[in-house]
Amino acid sequence: MSNIRISNLSFRYDDSSENIFNKLNLNLDSTWKLGLVGRNGRGKTTFLNLLRRKLHGLGEIQTRLSFSYYPIKVEDQKNITLYELQKQVAFEEWELERELNLMNVNPNLLWQPFNTLSGGEQTKVLLALSFTDKDSFALIDEPTNHLDEDSRKEISNYLGKHEKGYIVVSHDRDFLNQVTDHILAIENMEIHLYQGNFAAYEDTKQKRDEFNREKNQKLKGEIRTLNESRLRLKGYSSKSENQKNAKAHSNEIHANINKGFYSHKAAKVMQRSKNVERRMNDDIQAKQ
């Protein structure tokens, strides 16, 4: 068992002014079967590429694990499948046959040209390849695309029973429910870790979103009240400032004598009002 420690990881593409991720901190156990979810374009494949060092951001990724990746690109599809895969990945024939047998796939497929395999057979062979190295951690990007129902079941059974951990990206909810025990959810430049499968994640997220909506409404009400109080305070301090003007006391016998008194009093009120208003502004900004 090993861990993947991610500390203060930030990343953005050179042609963008906005971060994809901002100061991520995660500690992932390599025995976990993790589902990576998020809306399109929010960084799922980018995160996998950061883990496998194809991209580099600010911060640290610490682990003793190596990473395998699905799907690799098959360069010469007319070549015998086994030979072509061995050109790209170091493995023994028996290791790949072991994984294919676990998937209930005939290992004789390895002796056919890759382009003669069906789409489902190609997917299964490349997925099995990701698990040939016992010391690697599999990163699996959309393994169920273009598969029929039977093939999806075979792959979900294979992953569900596999002893090794992995990260899998998929939009198939039923598939994720069968093959995950933790969920990584990309939300607002952050990745949040949830325990349980996709259904458990959805339930937790729904409850959290409802809590946040209620909290947001409460904060909006508090901000509105603070703004109203701030306006009243401004009106009061302005009235006090006006009292410094001797004309406001033209009918008073001792207007000239009281001018200094009113000026001193107004200055104290103004300073106190400014202090209160400054605290109100800070409170409003924090609540916003």
Rank of each mutant, 00 (worst) to 15 (best):
K54R: 11
K54T: 10
R152W: 06
L96P: 00
L102E: 14
N258W: 11
D15R: 11
H254G: 11
T46N: 02
K220V: 09
D15H: 11
D172Q: 08
S118R: 05
G38M: 02
V105W: 00
F91W: 07
S136C: 11
N227K: 15
Q288C: 07
A267W: 07
K207M: 12
N281G: 06
L85N: 04
L117S: 01
I4R: 04
Y83A: 14
A255T: 09
N79C: 13
W94S: 13
Y69I: 05
N251K: 13
E277S: 11
N281P: 03
I140L: 02
S30N: 10
A138N: 02
N79K: 15
R152P: 04
T63D: 01
L176P: 04
H56D: 10
N242M: 13
S170F: 00
Q122D: 05
K244V: 01
K247V: 11
I191M: 07
F175Q: 04
G38S: 12
E190N: 15
S238E: 15
D283P: 03
Q88M: 13
N22T: 09
K259V: 05
V269T: 10
A128H: 04
E214A: 13
R98K: 15
D203I: 10
H182G: 08
L184D: 04
G260S: 15
P143H: 08
Y201R: 03
V168H: 06
S2G: 12
S151P: 06
A267T: 11
R12W: 07
N177S: 03
E228N: 13
H171P: 00
A138C: 06
L55E: 04
N197I: 02
S7C: 12
G120M: 06
N19M: 07
V169P: 00
A266I: 03
S170Y: 02
M189G: 08
G119W: 06
F47G: 02
M1Y: 08
I191K: 06
A200D: 14
I253W: 12
F175E: 00
